[in-house]
């Protein structure tokens, strides 16, 4: 059992997301950075889909009532094991002894996201195939809401050893360049706006959240006002409401939308949405479908290599 002794806003239980139910209006939820989830779970010998904690605002103080291996991935926080005063090294497994607390202090980068995986995974019920918290519809995760002080979290059975602490992984660094394909309504924007979209630095607005990144910059204009019938949307779609300021939809976005879409961020870059906090800037880079596929295959190869390397480290540990 893990007890939440202190908790800032917006720590949620997430896994790789709730897929296949958008036709019922059910959003994806899930960790904004699924790669960080895979990394943490691999380090601990968990299945890839085990649930972890996504933390974006500190502090978070957890007390473990049993020995437990944990792994910190993602970016932004410094974590310490209090009784030893030991730092948790990101990308490495740490052993927490029964009775110890883990403290994630204030985020170094406000709005960045860190993931804490625990051996066995966070044990909350599977709802529609996922343990992710759907904050808007209020189901999944722990009681369908962010964690609060006093919450108690169960962990699943640990079936395997963790990767030895001396072997770890380096977190990926976000490039702040989001590769994208022109969206279904790209040609409805003025030539100047299309150019502006790809060429300017878009500042991440402070109203950004898990539903979407709101961007500030030179507003985009349509050739003429455009009415659209509601159609399915996905995380990574870049909508442009009447303000002309784009919104990059993220995991908690609604399933259907009616705003013009100027572009769609490719899958290989979606994990970066977790690591572009308010105040930072992003660029969009136009790519082709073939380039998007190549990027995805390269990312898969990177993940496979990481899996192979960590699995062999696991075998050596057994």
């Amino acid at each position: 059992m893990i007890e939440v002794l202190r908790c800032g806003a917006l720590t949620t239980v997430q896994d790789l997301g709730r897929h296949g139910y958008r036709h019922l209006g059910v959003g994806q939820s899930g960790a904004l950075d699924p790669i960080a989830v895979r990394q943490g779970n691999l380090l601990l010998g968990n299945p890839a889909e085990a649930a972890v904690l996504e933390i974006s605002v500190g502090p978070l103080v957890l007390r473990f009532d049993q020995d437990c291996a944990v792994a910190l991935t993602g970016s932004g926080f410094v974590a310490t094991i209090d009784h030893g005063g030991i730092d948790l090294l990101p990308g490495h497994v740490a052993m927490i002894a029964a009775g110890d607390t883990v403290t994630l202090s204030k985020s170094l980068v406000p709005g960045a996201r860190t993931y804490l995986a625990v051996a066995g995974g966070i044990d909350v019920p599977l709802v529609m195939g996922s343990r992710s918290t759907d904050i808007n519809a209020r189901f999944g995760g722990l009681h369908g809401r962010p964690l609060q002080t006093g919450d108690k979290l169960a962990t699943g059975l640990c079936s395997t050893n963790a990767v030895p602490a001396k072997k770890g992984i380096r977190p990926l660094s976000p490039s702040h360049i989001l590769r994208a394909l022109p969206g279904p309504d790209y040609e409805s924007f003025t030539a100047q706006s299309c150019e502006d979209f790809w060429n300017q630095a878009w500042r991440i607005n402070h109203q950004s959240n898990r539903m979407g990144l709101r961007l500030s910059g030179h507003a985009l204009e349509l050739l003429q006002s455009l009415e659209l019938l509601s159609a399915g949307v996905l995380p990574g779609d870049v909508q442009v409401p009447s303000s002309g300021l784009p919104i990059v939809l993220a995991n908690d976005a609604q399933t259907i939308g009616g705003y013009p879409r100027i572009a769609c961020v490719i899958q290989a870059d979606l994990w970066q949405l977790a690591h572009v906090p308010p105040g930072t800037s992003v660029y969009f880079q136009q790519v082709t479908v073939d380039e998007a596929i190549t990027a995805l295959v390269q990312q898969r190869r990177y993940l496979s290599r990481m899996e192979d390397s960590l699995r062999s480290a696991l075998r050596e540990a057994c």
């Binding site: 897929h19 296949g20 994806q28 699924p34 790669i35 290989a268 979606l270 994990w271 295959v297 993940l303």
Partner: peptide, 13 residues
């Protein structure tokens, strides 16, 4: 699903 990062195994590529 085959080309999804989140929803399928990294081996399905």
């Amino acid at each position: 699903a085959v080309q999804s990062v989140g929803a399928c195994s990294t081996r399905d590529s």
